[in-house]
Write a protein that binds this DNA or RNA. Structure first.
Length: 360
DNA sequence: ACTCTGGCTCAAGACGAA
DNA sequence: TTGAGCCAGAGT
DNA sequence: TTCGTCC
């Protein structure tokens, strides 16, 4: 997923668009998050031993809920206001890509069965990761949880990233939080990476400023999109032999892909036959997104009993664990306003020698 | 010398008890 | 699976 | 900090 080499391209050609941010600076900020990506990761990683994952007695997987519950609490505790956006139907352009993935999954499933027979633990582990799939029901369970926790939730008509960008463009959120650089192709004013890393790794948040990208590259939105298509995106192939560096210089020289094609030595650089770059461009320019007209985002207090009924009652989470986590959340609420005052008066002494777990 | 490719590596969540 | 970083090799 | 557990 994403645009190949875009991070490096930007740090070379438009370094000013990247800014490191302190985690603390996201206090009270609203961010749009592509929930599907997170769910997928959790399914992949949480609680797996061999082909086992976390499940309730009915055999329903619960890794995604465990992960999202904890992560959402962490964000709220940190004073961040997340909006979750879920993927809708993938664009038909992605069909080829998706079919490929399905083939691979089928292959992996066969390999998994074989590995089980042979009792090859390592192989079982590897293959079962490859067969991970997020079902419709699992997405809906996460939506249910998010609503119980008082967050705004959206089901995007198409790709979640595009709708995150739309929310940001409409000024409803400060940034889209994503690891996926595609988001910038949708002209998302701000992209925040590593938003959730501080706890586990201490990486700072990395912000990308869309306007600065265009300014420093000295390009229009269309030209930037063309560069991304040439680098390689999800929607279509790219030209062999043309990578990030040539993409930039070619677009600078010719202005767009159409003109570029007229001057390109197609002996050296064979253009893929049936190359739908125009359609790809169109998907970036006019994606199908949630309607933001008159939209208002509201955050409400978590419904503790509702959460307990769902996670403990249906999914067999430990009640004490769930209630404790929610208690911490409540405790953090009071601090939020205090921290805001402190930062307002510039009184925050951020000593990041030890990545501050605040003590009272 | 520069650029792109394709090979390889790595890690990937979060908590709390010890 | 993804990405990022690194290093070899090949093409320009 | 590391490691086992979360369901």
């Amino acid at each position: 997923m994403g645009i190949k080499g875009l991070t490096k391209l930007l740090s070379d050609h438009a370094p000013g668009c990247m800014r490191e941010q302190k985690f603390e600076s996201y206090l009270d900020r609203k961010v749009a998050i592509d929930a599907s990506m997170h769910i997928y990761q959790f399914m992949m990683v949480i609680g797996r031993q061999g082909d086992q994952t976390l499940t309730n007695d009915a055999g329903e997987v619960t890794s995604h809920l465990q992960g999202m519950f904890m992560r959402t609490c962490r964000m709220l505790e940190a004073g961040i206001k997340p909006v979750y956006v879920f993927d809708g139907k993938p664009p038909t352009m992605k069909g080829g890509e998706l079919a490929k993935r399905k083939d691979k999954r089928d292959e992996a499933e066969a390999a998994l069965a074989k590995a089980k027979e042979a009792g090859d633990q390592e192989e079982i582990e590897k293959m079962s990761k490859r067969t991970v799939r997020v079902t419709r029901q699992q997405s809906q369970e996460v939506m249910q949880l998010a609503r119980l926790m008082g967050l705004p939730v959206f089901e995007a008509p198409c790709e979640a990233e595009a709708s995150c960008a739309a929310l940001c463009k409409a000024g409803l959120v400060y940034a889209a939080a994503s690891e996926d650089m595609d988001t910038l192709c949708f002209a998302c004013p701000k992209l925040a990476r590593n938003l959730m890393s501080p706890a586990s790794q201490g990486k700072p948040i990395l912000e990308f400023d869309y306007e600065k990208i265009l300014t420093e590259l000295d390009m229009t939105w269309e030209q930037f999109i063309d560069v991304c298509i040439l680098c390689g995106c999800d929607y279509c192939d790219s030209i062999k032999g043309v990578g990030p560096v040539k993409a930039v210089s070619l677009i600078k020289k010719h202005g767009n892909i159409e003109t570029l094609l007229q001057h390109l030595d197609t002996e050296k650089y064979p253009v893929p036959e049936d190359w739908p770059y125009k359609e790809a461009r169109e998907l970036f320019k006019h994606p199908d997104v949630v309607n933001t007209d008159g939209l208002e985002l509201k955050w409400t207090a978590p419904d503790e009993e509702g959460i307990v009924a769902f996670l403990v009652g249906e999914k067999q989470f430990g009640e004490e664990r769930v209630r404790n986590t929610l208690k911490k959340l409540k405790a953090a609420k009071g601090k939020s306003s205090q921290n805001r005052l402190e930062s307002f008066f510039g009184a925050v002494t951020v000593k990041s020698s030890t990545t501050g777990k605040r003590k009272e």
